[in-house]
Design a protein around this nucleic acid. Sequence first.
DNA 1: TTCTACATATTATGATTATAAAATGCAATA
DNA 2: TATTGCATTTTATAATCATAATATGTAGAA
Lengths: 293, 293
Amino acid sequence: MARNSLSPQISNSIIEFVKSKEMRKGEHLPLQMLADAFRVSRAPVMSALRRLEEEGVVRAEANRGYFLAVDAENLGITSRPTEQESGEDAIYFKIAEDRLAGRLPERVSEAELMRLYELPRSRLLKILHRIADEGWVERLPGNGWAFRQTLTSRQSYEDGYAFRAVIEQQAMLLPSFEPDLEELQRARQTQTALSAGGYQTWSRAEIFKANNEFHEMLVGWSKNEFFLDAIRRINRLRRLIEYHITIDRSRLPKQTEEHLHILDLIESGRRSEAAAFLYTHIMGAGRIKAPQV
Amino acid sequence: MARNSLSPQISNSIIEFVKSKEMRKGEHLPLQMLADAFRVSRAPVMSALRRLEEEGVVRAEANRGYFLAVDAENLGITSRPTEQESGEDAIYFKIAEDRLAGRLPERVSEAELMRLYELPRSRLLKILHRIADEGWVERLPGNGWAFRQTLTSRQSYEDGYAFRAVIEQQAMLLPSFEPDLEELQRARQTQTALSAGGYQTWSRAEIFKANNEFHEMLVGWSKNEFFLDAIRRINRLRRLIEYHITIDRSRLPKQTEEHLHILDLIESGRRSEAAAFLYTHIMGAGRIKAPQV
DNA sequence: TTCTACATATTATGATTATAAAATGCAATA
DNA sequence: TATTGCATTTTATAATCATAATATGTAGAA
């Protein structure tokens, strides 16, 4: 049997791409450009476009290529989850849940996991390596893998918040820190939308994503990839743990208000104040939202 | 063909183990205790002990097990590099070198790497995943892997130092920070030995290891695994980059002197002073040792 | 010239299998 | 009662192969 095709994912990527570029009906979509954007060869882009043509998103012209058939903004939510990535993610979450619920022992062999989740070894290993990168499982010297405490202990949870608070605050104090004003405006819009009622209607995943993006944006402005990497890594963990905590939506107005305050401080050049405020902002969140373990 | 045996590595681990415990001739070495210590089953420990018996390091008694045949301190450098780990490490370094020298292109397929380094896929993937974890290579969505700038850019190098400086300083300022006085004394001894001439005779690897252990010890005292993880991760990278830089041994006396100063400050409870000094210590090292790229 | 469209080469996956190693249950022994 | 030493079960590796995917060279159209 062969591997799963990339093209469904590429289809989604193309839709996201034209949306983010706000492209209009009739614009040309050169193969190579798309291939470069997604870091693949022209082949999977080609088959993705063929599929999109069937769906009427793009229009093909012989020997001239593909052209957007509608304005990007009118595309709606044409992107569906692909079985590939949803499958992989689903198992990732399943493992996390099973571990948190104690259904998985501290040590398991690869063979056991292959049986449990009905995966071929290569697919399983891909997931396990991702988890290992996030730091909550590790390969044993002999057979099998061992889960670490990271996920289950209350202490780790609080340590994570302390870490985030330090990293983000200090990133902001680096000499290389420089806000991207355009991004800042966009973030302000998002936070305002959230504050103006969005916190009641948005899905948990959307709220969580918006929050993560806000913080990663701030750290990104430090221009130091090590700080950004560290934050990304811990955010992936956070997503996992907090995924199953019911969001206390009553806290969101305060949170977005604080986010907006941080943006204000940055924009008016009061960087050290912003950094200090950011620190307390994060530590406050960690203290309240911590799960009982 | 089957996998490589663990037991050569276990042999080395046993020797390290008895040395670190300063065990004396005749002490018993229970199988299960060793197995637990190394996180493996009794099987590979058993075969390691059999091997060590042939070499006269331990003595076997029928149905009673194995006993140390000499005082641990008299063992000398009985541990040789095992073909397994030296092989894996060697290829890891080779890849790094080849990349730094431009012999490897930014993108390579797995098949290409398998041919180049004559590795089966599983072995290669293990190495690639380790490298990916260190952040200087990543899997492409289609075929192949892409090297990132981390290794080659001067900017990354300096960013790394800024990151280390922040993490270590802040770790020391955490409320949970508490020095282990016994470790502290051992570190003082090491640094004193280094200062008393060791910096001229020790190998580069030994000096580098001592330095890393010093810093990881400090961060470990924060009791926050996220800080420690971050430092470990970046130290692995550092090892790689600085491995090929000739150590400026004339700087070592100053370095060890500063290390001792930090220990003094910690011991006398002047933590924030120690943290501040640590910060400048690291930033100073980064400024001077940076390689030309 | 740029780019597509097709043909061809190359690649990664997954299934299968042999084999040596690791893990483990348990009787025998100190 | 704890621990060894053996026997048995289970596991991970590596090699091979079929297959469907990705990558790429190139003629020819725009």
